[in-house]
Simulated assay, not measured.
Amino acid sequence: MQWEGINEFVSVAETESFTQAAKAIQISTAQVSRQVSALEKRLKVKLFYRTTRKVSLTEEGRVFYQHCRSVLDGLDAAERALTNLQSTPQGKVRLTASVTYGEQQILPIINDFMLRYRDVEVTAYLSNQRVDLVEQGFDLAIRLGKLNDSSMMAKKLGTRTNYLCASPAYLDQYGVPHSLSELNKHSCLLGTLDYWHFSDAGKERNIRVNGRLRYNSGYGLVDAALKGLGIVQLPDYYVQQHIQSGALVTLLDNYRESDEGIWAVYPKNRHLSAKIRLLVDFLAEHLVDLY
């Protein structure tokens, strides 16, 4: 009886919303409200200030939250300890990643992981839109580049490199650019942005480029570059094999920006279970071997 409402209370405290808390723990908003109200009645104290726009902890609520969070963390630790005693990890994992990187890099590694650990169930949702892990109930996300969300914890899995490149046929016909300023004389194969990223004397630079072709498909851009339609800037997983074969030639290597991070991201207040930690370590190990 004394545990009733604790999970609901903690979820509301962390999301600052009854609706978001309900989504996070996958019950109805009405049930969350009833449980929190019953908890307040049982404790004989007001835990939240409620307005139509915002939910925030009272002073008593903050004190109670800190103790409840510690208790739940202890329960998580106890569960992890039991899981670690098992010979193999088991249970469900929900993760998200961007579409192309997920298809080409992440999902094949997860398939290998599931061949090794047959009691683990994985649901992967690939999207190029930023997914709210807490609201949509994901255990972790694989994200690329700079991280801006301070409410999340992150483990670095590896790095990726952006290459500027073109086919030998294109360069034979139009010449090789030797400076950033020369790019405006070339046919640039555009993605979703109007600029490319470079590093100039240690400083980041975004150079606006132009061209008669624009795709929101990395594979389409690679094909265009291979057929001599222009210069392209893309991550290594699109172009690495073509660079190694000589079908594409890297350009302006002295201006290449620093490698971007590949991250496993998870909510700050959620400890990684043994199965998720094992998956994260498995991804980090195998991403290193891709190239």
Rank of each mutant, 00 (worst) to 15 (best):
G175T: 13
D119E: 10
L133Y: 00
P168K: 05
R143L: 07
T159A: 05
K146R: 09
L144T: 07
V176I: 11
L115M: 11
L144Y: 02
D149W: 05
I142A: 00
D139V: 05
D139E: 11
L164Y: 00
G175L: 12
S127D: 15
V176M: 10
Q129W: 04
Y117H: 12
C165I: 12
D139S: 10
L140A: 04
N128Y: 08
G175R: 07
N128G: 07
A141I: 11
G145T: 01
L157C: 04
M114D: 02
T159E: 06
T123F: 12
L115S: 05
L140I: 10
E121C: 12
D119Y: 06
K146Y: 05
V122M: 09
L157A: 02
T161P: 01
A124N: 10
L133E: 01
K155N: 14
N128M: 12
Y125H: 14
G145A: 03
G137L: 09
S179W: 07
H178P: 04
H178V: 15
Y170D: 01
A141P: 03
K156W: 00
R143D: 01
D149V: 06
D119V: 08
A124G: 04
A166Q: 03
L180G: 05
S127P: 06
S179C: 13
E135G: 11
E135Y: 12
T123L: 13
S150K: 12
A169Y: 07
V120Q: 03
Q136H: 14
P177D: 07
M114K: 13
V134H: 01
R116H: 09
K146E: 10
K156G: 03
Q129A: 15
M152Q: 10
L147D: 08
T123W: 11
R118M: 08
N128K: 04
Q173D: 12
Y125A: 13
L171W: 02
V131T: 14
A169C: 07
K146C: 05
I142Y: 00
M114I: 09
L140Y: 00
M153R: 14
L126N: 01
A154P: 02
D172H: 11
V131P: 00
F138S: 03
E135F: 09
M152G: 04
V122A: 06
A169I: 13
R116D: 09
L157E: 00
V134L: 08
F138H: 07
K156S: 06
Y174R: 15
L115A: 11
T159Q: 02
N162G: 06
E121Q: 10
K146W: 01
S127E: 11
D132K: 14
A166L: 02
V176K: 03
R118H: 08
V120L: 03
S179A: 15
V134C: 07
Y117T: 05
D132A: 09
L126H: 02
R130N: 13
T123I: 14
